[in-house]
């Protein structure tokens, strides 16, 4: 079995008496889409925050490409290759779609302390940014400010940013949320191809998408992973059916 890119061991995080993350172990292997599902309030976002570095776990291990990333902040983890998208789109609203992606390109090049060269004439920034936009189908919206993009387009833009970062693993927090059926379908197709580039930890409520895409699924309930397995394992897992999918799913 290949070494996991992301390896989480016995992660714990409490808010007062609430155990938001209660001994979670999870890994993400090269080439796979690992879906994380669970009812609202199960602690999915808390988990993503701890992986990305915006929340400090109480205990447990987070390794990225074999390296302990717990001491690193959000920016440092992003530089290692964590390409994260947000449950609620988080963009620079006044910047055009293109400039939002260019920011990721410049970060990847490790060169934000250059003071005199205008970015808009810097083809080493604009070309990769245009490429990333083209891959998610936003080419004709490149000059529109992020604030004026539609909800679905913003989600696409977040993925373009993660692509431009050259992420070694994608952490996608409900990328389908709020997208129309057509958008979801197109994104499903896109993510299907993306796993060859870098593995995806996918948090998603859209079960059609999850069952279509996931190589493995983990089910999180009350901060605990109650089952991990293939799509068929999870569909037929009695505890999962009871806790989450409901009878008849």
């Amino acid at each position: 079995m290949a070494e996991p890119i992301l390896d989480i061991r016995d992660l714990r995080k409490s808010f007062g008496a609430l155990k938001a993350t209660d001994g979670v172990s999870l890994d993400l292997r090269p080439g796979e889409i690992h879906a994380l599902i669970g009812p609202n309030g199960a602690g999915k976002s808390t988990l993503i925050h701890q992986i990305a570095g915006s929340l400090k776990p109480d205990s447990g291990e987070i390794r990225f490409e074999g390296r302990d990333v717990k001491p690193l902040d959000v920016a440092a983890r992003a530089r290692l290759g964590m390409g994260r998208t947000f449950q609620v789109s988080s963009l620079a609203p006044e910047f055009s779609a293109l400039r939002n992606v260019m920011l990721a390109v410049q970060a990847r090049q490790g060169s934000s302390f250059r003071f005199f060269k205008p970015v808009m004439h810097d083809r080493s920034l604009t070309e990769p940014a245009h490429e990333a936009l083209a891959r998610v189908g936003l080419s004709d919206r490149a000059d529109v400010s992020a604030a004026e993009l539609s909800h679905g387009e913003r989600r696409q833009l977040e993925i373009a940013i993660a692509l431009a970062l050259g992420a070694k693993a994608f952490l996608l927090d409900e990328p389908m949320a709020g997208m129309g059926p057509e958008g979801s379908q197109a994104l499903t197709t896109f993510l299907d191809g993306l796993r060859a580039e870098a593995p995806i930890l996918l948090i998603e409520h859209d079960m059609d998408a999850v069952f279509a895409l996931a190589d493995r699924i983990s089910v999180l309930v009350y901060g605990r992973i109650i089952a991990t397995g293939t799509v068929d394992d999870i569909r037929n897992h009695p505890a999962v059916r009871e806790a989450y999918l409901g009878d008849g799913a």
Binding site: A76, A92, P93, E94, R108, S112, P118, V119, I161
Partner: peptide
């Protein structure tokens, strides 16, 4: 108009985004 300015202005608009692309 520079790279530094892009990072600085992005930070004003949304510093979560700036950190998420790897710029402190």
């Amino acid at each position: 108009d520079s790279r530094f300015g892009a990072a600085l202005q992005a930070g004003r608009q949304n510093d979560t985004r700036l950190a998420a692309v790897g710029i402190g």
